[in-house]
């Protein structure tokens, strides 16, 4: 069985393939325009993770037409469209159904050269791992729901979630990566695990080097921890070894489920600093080298301070 990748890839000719992906979900912020932007950026992310270029998109909408003002839907769709335009893609249609709760997202079709598809599991020993966005959107989204997120935490989390992974993907392709995935619902360690599961390689993550959104630590201490974080931790605990003395937050945040999270890029060690500088220079300011691929222990993630 073929390993599951971030996108479906279908080769049309020797030098052209289409990549396809779909994602949609319920609102995680109150502002409908921002929710539209976040959902669209999140849907487009899988195409960027494999190194593709989004071509066309279709809206997927569930809407409670009896109980919600249609203007809310208009704002959601406008927010999404703004991100579709920013991606250089074209909205060609969509479909809506009546539902009790608003849901929105995109089905995305992109283009890619069949030989240039970036996979999850092709990282090589000594490769560095670059993460392009800070973690914490799951905890902060939970706190937003509870009404206790600070303005700074909310603003920074939203700014991160509406940011397309387009620039990161372009820089990554220009410099050359050996593997890539995007960090979403399974958290950093869950997605990192997919890069080495059933391979002869392992990963070292340096917890202190992982960028984290401001406020996430205080909110986690208040119990604003999404259920997905605990499920991610329980699912992957057998693969992960934490160094003794690592704080509970530093362990937890690595499992925080992300919405519209960053790319996790494996890059040859001699190119890593150059890629990081290029990311920073292109405006991906919070990108950081968070770990590396190792030969041993194979199939494990060791988290160091």
């Amino acid at each position: 069985m073929e390993r599951i990748q971030d996108c479906g890839v279908y080769r049309l000719s020797d030098d052209l393939a289409i990549v396809q992906t779909v994602d949609f979900f319920t609102p995680i912020v109150d502002d409908p325009y921002l929710f539209g932007q976040i959902a669209a950026a999140n849907s487009l992310s899988d195409v960027y993770a494999v190194g593709g270029k989004p071509l066309t998109v279709m809206n997927i909408v569930c809407f409670p037409s009896q109980s919600m003002d249609i203007d809310i839907l208009r704002q959601v769709l406008l927010g999404g469209l703004a991100k579709v335009c920013e991606a250089g893609a074209v909205l060609v249609g969509g479909h809506s159904v009546d539902d009790r709760e608003l849901k929105y997202g995109l089905a995305v079709t992109g283009l890619i050269h069949p030989q240039k598809v970036l996979r999850k599991e092709t990282a090589r020993p000594a490769d560095k791992l670059i993460l392009t966005k800070p973690l914490g959107t799951g905890i902060i989204s939970t706190a937003i729901k509870a009404g206790v997120a600070t303005e700074e935490a909310t603003t920074r989390a939203v700014a991160s979630m509406v940011t397309l992974n387009r620039v990161s993907s372009e820089v990554m392709q220009e410099i050359g990566a050996s593997a890539c995935t995007d960090v979403t619902g399974f958290g950093l360690l869950g997605h990192a695990a997919e890069m080495i599961e059933n391979t002869d390689r392992g990963i070292i993550i340096r917890a202190g080097a992982v960028p984290v959104l401001p406020g996430a630590e205080d909110l986690a201490a208040m119990g604003m921890v999404p259920g997905g974080l605990y499920r991610n931790r329980d699912f992957r605990s057998a693969m992960v070894e934490f160094a003794p003395g690592l704080s509970q937050f530093r362990q937890d945040i690595l499992f925080d489920p992300q919405t519209s999270g960053g790319l996790l890029i494996a890059v040859a060690p001699e190119k890593a600093k150059g890629m990081l500088s290029a990311l920073h220079a292109s405006g991906v300011k919070e990108a950081a080298i968070v770990g590396e691929i190792v030969k041993s222990p194979a199939g494990k993630i060791v988290v160091e301070p």
């Binding site: 986690a220 201490a221 208040m222 119990g223 921890v225 999404p226």
Partner: peptide, 15 residues
Amino acid sequence: DSPTAKENVTRLAKN
């Protein structure tokens, strides 16, 4: 009555 609630209440109170 959920594992998440149990962990979050414990975390909040200890902190």
